[in-house]
């Protein structure tokens, strides 16, 4: 290696190191701030009360978030319950079954859908879905059902696009091996292609659930934002994120209200952390059997 090459090699490495450190630092400071103010919420309201209570009142200065946690989980799980099977089926269809021509039209369309800002879905939900639910199923229309449908529309393209990519990236040699042994196409998809694409599929679900649980604005527009537990699909409720988005601007600086909102953020962070570790675990297990 010439002097010059050595120098640019070093320079490159140190630049990468610097950028990596900066982004890590930013990440850590974000986490630090959420923790700092979030912990205050736990301290001020009591750990168990904050998580398991169900009152949120600025005047009485009491805050607790169980209905929000329930709302967030119900809406996210509800959306995943539908969009994962639908999304995977679409992905399989596109990657394995659809003729090239169909794929060439549908795939770019889905990629575009992935990029649509979620507020747009929220707006559509508010204008079309909410009145529809109100007129046909009762209640105020603003409901977890509306939120779930909005989320499904929002995350379905993400799941399809990601899952399709991961299915298509399964080496064709695996597929050939299976078919040459006399497996049918469906058997091959089920027994070889899907298991091989598992890690990518899990990623797609994780990405989608991340989007779902983290979505604030679109959900805020359609879920009704009551501070109550939903008892049926047409009941309104409130999620951790929509709570933050609804109140952060009105909360007095440095007050317990603001801390409580940070507490919501902290809980969200925790849920996302669990999700990610779980997906990491699934992927690791997936690799071992591969």
């Amino acid at each position: 290696m010439s002097k010059h090459e050595q120098f640019s090699e070093k320079l490159g490495k140190s630049l990468i190191f610097i950028f990596a450190s900066i982004s890590l630092l930013i990440l850590l400071s974000i986490v630090f701030f959420i923790f700092r103010d979030g912990f205050l919420a736990f301290k001020e309201n009591g750990f168990f009360h904050f998580i398991f209570g169900h009152d949120w009142n600025v005047q009485d200065n009491t805050f607790s978030v169980l209905p929000l946690i329930v709302g967030s989980l119900v809406v996210t799980i509800g959306a995943l319950l539908f969009s994962v099977p639908i999304g995977f089926s679409c992905a399989v269809f596109l990657a394995e079954i659809a003729p090239e021509k169909v794929r060439n039209i549908v795939k770019p369309a889905i990629d575009i859908l992935v990029g649509i800002p979620s507020v747009v879905f929220g707006l559509l939900g508010m204008i079309l879905l909410v009145p529809y639910i109100r007129d046909h199923y009762g209640g105020p229309g603003l409901s977890i059902l509306a939120a779930i449908i909005v989320l499904i529309l929002m995350i379905l393209p993400t799941i399809i696009a990601q899952a399709e990519d991961s299915i298509r990236s399964v080496p064709s040699s695996f597929k050939n091996a299976s078919l040459a042994m006399g497996a049918t196409h469906l058997q091959t998809i089920w027994n070889v292609i899907l298991p091989c694409a598992k890690s990518g599929l899990v990623s797609s679900v994780m990405l989608a659930s991340g989007r779902a649980i983290g979505e604030a604005m679109a959900i805020y527009m359609v879920i009704g934002n009551t501070f109550t537990f939903p008892k049926s699909l047409i009941d309104p409720s409130r999620t951790l994120t929509s709570n933050i988005v609804g109140q952060i601007e009105e909360a007095a600086v440095g007050g317990t209200h603001l801390h409580a909102l940070f507490g919501c953020g902290l809980i969200l962070l925790f849920i996302v952390f669990i999700l990610n570790s779980y997906s990491f675990f699934i992927k690791r297990r997936g690799c071992r059997s591969c």
Binding site: F174, S178, V192
Partner: peptide, 20 residues
């Protein structure tokens, strides 16, 4: 499917499935 069970194939690159 029956045909391929009667006429087996071995490929240029070894291609065991990612299973045991």
């Amino acid at each position: 499917v029956k045909l391929r069970q009667r006429v087996g194939m071995v490929f240029q690159q070894p291609n065991p499935l990612p299973k045991s």
